[in-house]
């Protein structure tokens, strides 16, 4: 069976607090903090983007994969809605940086916030089918919310990377299920800088319908219940949605806690549930089952069941833990710095 051979995450050190954004736009910070369970979010500095986050996360995945020769990686898939180029692959840069070129297949995936789990799904399929020894799946974003839009309080940056293979696994993938419909809850047209969304339409008929659809189908297929799992991690556009959907499925706060990063990380879009998975693997024990379900607007969910192996204890500390990146040594920025870093200020060319 196929699964994860190595995993890693990378996050910016910079953060902005919800109050700092709310102050500028006259918004009510307490309602975001309580209502959406968002306290702060990560901010990528100007020298960081989806590609650089992907490279660092991949290096950590390689460190945990130990003996994997980058030349044995047959594919690199990066799922993101913030690829730095409209035309020119992100994956080739990562391949070049980790020494995996030239005998490799690269593709950049896009499916709103689901692009990362999509990359994981395809990478797993390749190694499962024995088409290649290893495949690298990366979930990364440096997302932008329009100034003053509700999304601005959550749009954040981060990356998770997973080397998939069939031997020396850290976590075996027991089963997956995907669930999609054409639901226009959030989109960004070509050449537009910021996305548009359907407001409250992004909830019940979008996030919840698809997350529940994929999760229930997978649990049914596997004949499992929430209580069979040690942990679960969901797409986290804010702190509240993943918690609510977890409870709806019968999971507890304790089960989601390790991977529930949004309250202090924000929404890392494609990175959200994959980075949640890295944080969960950081604390998981051999034999633990982990439930994971992504969500991407437009709309769909990919759900996975992971079974942690003995090898987790050997490799966990071969790279920095995700929670450490999230909570230590952070640098808080003010709105002006954030606006400059995110190129929201109009300048002369």
């Amino acid at each position: 069976m196929a699964g994860i051979v190595g995993y890693g995450a990378h996050l910016p050190r910079h953060r902005i607090k919800v109050e700092e954004i709310a102050k500028v736009w006259g918004a009510d910070a307490p309602s975001y903090k309580k209502g959406l369970m968002l306290r702060e979010k990560s901010v990528p500095p100007p020298d960081m983007d989806t590609i650089t986050l992907s490279v660092e996360a991949s290096k950590r995945a390689l460190a945990r994969a130990e003996m994997v020769d980058p030349a044995d990686i047959g594919a690199i898939y990066i799922g993101s809605e913030s690829h730095p180029y409209a035309v020119k692959p992100s994956g080739t840069v990562v391949a070049e940086a980790i020494g995996a070129t030239p005998h490799i297949h690269c593709a950049d995936f896009e499916f709103a916030c689901k692009a990362g789990s999509e990359a994981m799904y395809v990478a797993l399929s390749h190694v499962e089918a024995k088409q290649m020894k290893y495949a690298l799946a990366i979930a990364a974003d440096t997302s932008q919310g329009a100034p003053s839009d509700a999304l601005e309080f959550s749009a954040a940056a981060g990356a998770g990377a997973f080397i998939m293979g069939t031997d020396n696994l850290i976590a075996e993938c027991l089963d997956t299920h995907s669930y999609m419909t054409d639901t226009p809850d959030f989109w960004r047209r070509e050449h537009q800088f910021y996305p548009q969304h359907g407001g409250r339409f992004t909830g019940e008929e979008a996030y919840f319908a698809h997350t529940l659809g994929a999760s229930k189908a997978l649990l049914g297929k596997a004949g499992m219940k929430a209580k069979d799992f040690a942990y679960a991690t969901f797409h986290q556009p804010n702190g509240k949605f993943p918690q609510k959907v977890a409870f709806m499925l019968g999971f507890t706060q304790e089960q989601i806690d390790p991977g529930w990063l949004a309250p202090t990380l924000g929404n890392t879009y494609s990175g959200a549930s994959p980075i949640g998975l890295t944080a969960t693997l950081d604390v998981a024990k051999p034999g633990d089952l982990i439930f994971m379900c992504s969500y991407g607007s437009g709309a769909g969910s990919d759900a996975f069941i992971w079974k942690v192996t003995d090898r987790i204890n050997e490799v966990r500390d071969k790279a920095v833990h995700t929670r450490k990146l999230l909570s230590e040594n952070v640098i808080y920025v003010d709105y002006g710095t954030y606006a400059k870093y995110r190129r929201k200020i109009r300048k002369n060319d």
Binding site: P46, D47, M48, D49, I51, T52, V55, E56, P84, A97
Partner: peptide
């Protein structure tokens, strides 16, 4: 210091 991959 540590070396990191960045946009230059």
């Amino acid at each position: 210091v540590r070396v990191e991959f960045r946009r230059i």
